[in-house]
């Protein structure tokens, strides 16, 4: 199975690896997946309170190359978006961008879940009801 150049680039040089301070109210954390399933994704966003824009995003992922590339790409896309715009990110856009093979589509689903989970965490911390 040959992977796309974009996928390999994200795998070899992942963007935004790291950890944000989850005790801050401006930070939302999503932890999805399970070690038994072979992938765990932790994705974090930091929201600028004045503008409502995502000013930083970080991830760490335990998983295959597609899972790592999907989360790296997701953090790239999140930065500069509003929370509502971020919620609109669809896993199929990740599939297309990285040319994920059919057996790896679940990696993109996991990334979408991680985004939604991080946003839900941010909103619940700040008393914002989901729409």
């Amino acid at each position: 199975m040959a992977y796309s150049e974009k996928l390999i680039e994200h795998f070899n040089h992942p963007k935004n690896v790291g950890t944000l301070d989850k005790s801050k109210n401006s930070v939302g954390t999503g932890l999805v997946g399970a070690p038994e399933c072979g992938d765990v994704m932790r994705l974090q966003i930091e929201v600028d309170e004045a503008s409502g824009m995502i000013k930083d995003a970080k991830f760490k992922t335990f998983g295959c190359g597609s899972a790592i590339a999907s989360s790296s790409l997701a953090t790239e896309w999140l930065k500069g978006k509003t929370v509502d715009e971020a919620l609109a990110i669809d896993n199929m856009a990740i599939v297309e961008e990285l040319a994920l093979p059919p057996v790896k589509i679940h990696c993109s689903v996991l990334a979408e879940d991680a985004i939604k989970s991080a946003i839900a965490d941010y909103r619940s911390k700040n008393g914002i009801a989901a729409e």
Binding site: P14, V17, T19, L31, V32, G33, A34, P35, E36, C37, V40, M41, R42, K60, T61, F62, I68, H106, V109, L110, D113, S117
Partner: peptide, 24 residues
């Protein structure tokens, strides 16, 4: 391991068996 959240949790001394994972 630098990329792995569970390695980070392990190094922080978190009991991974006690974490409630969202299985999919």
């Amino acid at each position: 391991r630098d990329l792995s959240p569970i390695w980070e949790m392990f190094k922080e001394g978190i009991d991974l068996d006690a974490v409630e994972w969202s299985e999919h």
